[in-house]
Amino acid sequence: MSYSVTLTGPGPWGFRLQGGKDFNMPLTISRITPGSKAAQSQLSQGDLVVAIDGVNTDTMTHLEAQNKIKSASYNLSLTLQKS
């Protein structure tokens, strides 16, 4: 079951990613910084990142996902799936 979260910026957003197409692993939330915008939302460590700002992550490399997140200036919309 997927869910959506919109973090209001600017960054830093307070989470780290792992995985990506180049690692043959789905993009997942690997760490959440305590007290951060991510920590105050529904994000959980281990959640799968399905889309970033409406763009499906199935074919994204780790770097492409990082760049997509960094390019979000004020709002960052994520679609996630609980692990």
Rank of each mutant, 00 (worst) to 15 (best):
S36W: 02
F23E: 13
L43S: 02
T61M: 05
T79N: 10
G9C: 06
D53M: 13
E64H: 06
K21D: 06
Y3D: 05
N56L: 14
K21L: 10
K37S: 09
R16Q: 09
D47H: 04
G11P: 07
G14T: 00
N24C: 09
G20E: 02
I52V: 06
S2P: 05
T6C: 13
R16S: 14
F15S: 01
K68L: 14
L48S: 09
P12V: 04
T57M: 03
N24E: 09
S36K: 03
T28D: 02
S44Y: 06
G20N: 03
L63M: 14
Q18Y: 06
G46F: 04
L80H: 01
K82R: 15
E64M: 07
T79C: 12
F23Q: 13
G14A: 01
Q81V: 15
S73K: 15
Q66K: 14
I32D: 01
T59Q: 10
Q40S: 11
V55E: 14
L43T: 02
K21I: 10
Y74D: 15
N75M: 12
Q66L: 12
D22N: 13
G54N: 07
L80Y: 05
L80C: 15
A72D: 12
A65Q: 03
I52N: 00
S41P: 03
A51D: 07
D58H: 12
L7G: 00
S73L: 12
T28P: 00
T57Y: 02
M25N: 09
D47P: 00
T59K: 11
K21R: 10
D47Q: 05
N75C: 10
P34N: 10
A65S: 05
L7E: 00
N56A: 14
G35T: 05
F23L: 14
S83F: 12
I52T: 02
A72V: 15
V49N: 01
Q45A: 15
I29P: 00
L76S: 03
A39F: 09
A51G: 11
A51R: 09
D47E: 06
S30V: 07
D58Q: 12
S36G: 13
I32W: 00
L78H: 00
L76G: 03
V5K: 02
L43D: 00
A72M: 10
I32Q: 00
D22H: 04
L27M: 10
N75S: 13
G20H: 02
L27N: 02
G35C: 06
A39D: 10
M1P: 04
T61I: 03
T33S: 12
N75Q: 14
L7N: 02
P34Y: 09
S4K: 14
L7D: 02
Q42G: 14
L43Y: 01
S44M: 11
P10F: 10
K68A: 15
W13A: 04
Q45D: 07
G20C: 02
S44R: 12
S77E: 13
S36C: 04
G54S: 06
R31D: 14
H62T: 07
Q18M: 14
T33Q: 08
T6K: 09
L17K: 00
S4C: 10
F23I: 12
T57C: 09
S83C: 15
L76K: 03
V50Y: 06
H62W: 10
S73Q: 14
P10M: 10
P10S: 09
A65L: 05
L17M: 12
R16D: 12
N75V: 11
P12R: 05
G46D: 06
T57H: 01
A65V: 11
I32T: 04
G19Y: 03
Y3I: 08
I69K: 01
V5D: 02
P12N: 06
D47M: 05
L48E: 12
H62P: 04
K37N: 07
N67Y: 12
I29T: 02
T8S: 08
G20Q: 02
A38Y: 02
G20Y: 02
P26I: 01
L43C: 06
Q42M: 08
A39T: 05
T28L: 07
V50G: 03
K70I: 11
I69F: 04
W13G: 02
G54V: 00
P34D: 11
Q18P: 00
P26W: 02
G9P: 06
A72Q: 14
L27P: 04
S30N: 07
I32L: 07
G14H: 02
Q66A: 15
S41F: 09
T79G: 10
A72C: 07
P12D: 14
I52E: 01
P26M: 03
N67C: 07
F23K: 15
A72R: 13
S83N: 06
R31Q: 09
D53A: 06
W13P: 03
M1D: 15
Q42W: 06
K70A: 14
D22I: 04
S77D: 09
K21F: 08
G35F: 07
I32E: 00
I52M: 05
A51C: 10
I29A: 02
D47R: 01
K68G: 04
Y3N: 06
L17A: 04
S71D: 13
L27I: 10
M25K: 12
D22K: 04
K68C: 09
A65T: 04
I69A: 05
L48W: 11
T59I: 08
S41W: 07
S83K: 08
D22A: 05
Q42I: 07
N24M: 07
T57Q: 02
S44T: 14
A51L: 07
A72N: 10
D47T: 04
V5L: 05
D47N: 03
A39V: 04
G35M: 08
P26A: 06
F15R: 01
G46R: 04
N67A: 15
S73D: 15
M1K: 08
L48P: 05
K37C: 09
L63F: 09
I69M: 08
Q40T: 11
F23Y: 06
K37Y: 07
K70L: 13
L78I: 08
I52R: 00
D22Q: 05
G11W: 05
K70R: 14
Q42N: 11
T6H: 09
Q18S: 15
A65I: 06
S41L: 08
P10T: 13
K68I: 08
L80I: 09
G46C: 04
N75W: 09
D53H: 05
L7T: 01
T79K: 15
K70Y: 10
S73G: 15
N75E: 15
M25F: 07
S71N: 13
S77Y: 09
V55T: 14
D47V: 03
T28A: 15
P10Q: 08
A51E: 15
E64P: 00
Q42S: 13
F23N: 08
E64I: 05
S41H: 11
A65Y: 02
I69H: 00
Q81L: 13
S4R: 10
S44E: 13
L48F: 10
L27H: 07
M60H: 02
G19E: 03
N67W: 06
V50H: 07
M60F: 10
T79W: 07
R16V: 13
L48K: 13
A51P: 00
A39C: 09
L17N: 02
M1F: 14
L80K: 01
I32R: 00
V5I: 11
G35V: 04
T28Y: 12
K37P: 15
Q66P: 01
K70E: 13
M60P: 00
K21H: 07
V55S: 10
T59L: 09
S36T: 14
S30D: 09
T79A: 10
P34A: 10
T79R: 13
G14P: 02
Q66R: 15
A65R: 01
S36P: 01
W13E: 02
L80Q: 00
F23P: 05
Y74T: 15
L17S: 02
N24H: 07
K82A: 15
R31Y: 14
T59H: 10
Y74A: 15
K68T: 11
I32S: 02
S30K: 14
L27Y: 03
G46M: 03
S36N: 03
N24I: 05
H62M: 13
A39Q: 11
M1S: 11
G46P: 01
S77Q: 15
S36L: 06
Q40R: 13
V5W: 02
T79H: 11
G19L: 01
V55F: 11
Y3V: 07
L80G: 04
E64C: 08
L7W: 04
T59F: 09
L78Y: 00
I29S: 00
G19T: 02
G19V: 01
V49F: 01
T6P: 02
G54M: 04
L7Q: 00
Q40D: 12
S41Y: 09
I52Q: 01
D47Y: 02
S36H: 03
S77L: 11
A38I: 03
W13T: 03
V55A: 13
P12S: 07
K70S: 13
G46I: 00
S2L: 11
G11T: 06
P34W: 04
Q42R: 11
V55M: 12
G14K: 01
T28I: 08
Q42E: 15
S71H: 09
V49C: 07
D58Y: 08
P26H: 04
